[in-house]
Nucleic acid binder design. Sequence first.
DNA 1: CAAAGAACCTGGCGGC
DNA 2: TGCCGCCAGGTTCTTT
Length: 274
Amino acid sequence: MPELPEVETIKRQLAPHVTGRTIVRVSVLDPLLTKPMSPRAFNSRLAGCGITAVSRRGKYLRFELDDGAMLVIHLRMTGILVYLEKRPRGDLRHMRLLLGLDDGSWLAMRDARRFGKALVLESGEIEPYWRRLGPEPLERSFDRRVMARIVSGRRKPVKSTLLDQQLIAGIGNIYADEALFRAGIHPERPAGSLSDKEIADLTISIKETLRHAIRLQGSSIDTYRDARGSQGRFQDTFRVHRRAGLPCPRCGGVVEKIRVGGRGTYFCPCCQKR
DNA sequence: CAAAGAACCTGGCGGC
DNA sequence: TGCCGCCAGGTTCTTT
């Protein structure tokens, strides 16, 4: 669910509220969330920690702590993280984590499918942990040269390449489909077969698609909500994703759905030739 | 080493 | 209404 634009939206909304606050209450309602760390150990490790900054890397949300450690949250498919002025009451369905802050506000994470993860990285673990991820596509340094290195020699489909977090961080199923459409590239093209022109177009398309989605606060297909509990609006501008059988906005042809690397994949067979 | 596939979970939807 | 299979924004482990 939450890909780069959704996590970036949540980060921006959270930052002004939680930066400088101290975590005073920790409640893990599902041990799977912190596994292999026990809820008890997670609780005692975090209680009393001050939050010095909120940041994002790929699809991960990160809270930098005043003792040099880092709280990391990944929402996976159905995770929702909201900021609340007061402790949530009433419906705790799917609630997995509650963090109480020193001004009486709370962070509440729900996750119907229980894929989400929360973990604490000690100072020495931080750098190696993020090293596994590929570059951030919205960084200035992410250019056609970097993209060329990512696709070169790879035989797997270009779409699967875009989804590989070790190669590029933050792109998920929605934005892979949309960026490939924008660039006019068929999702099953072997990554290594792209021309220099296609690599340049794809680089630009990725950046534009992600920036546009951030402007619209991400995509809400089903469960996604931002930190205020609101839906994103980028789903209203999908060109191909989830639009099988509907007309392509560019050529009027019919959008098709296929399976690539096990993921539902949408494209226009007319605008994205093999 | 790269790539494909299964596993991890739950809920919603269409079909019968 | 009930049951069954299929599908879903992601990552990771196993197998080929």
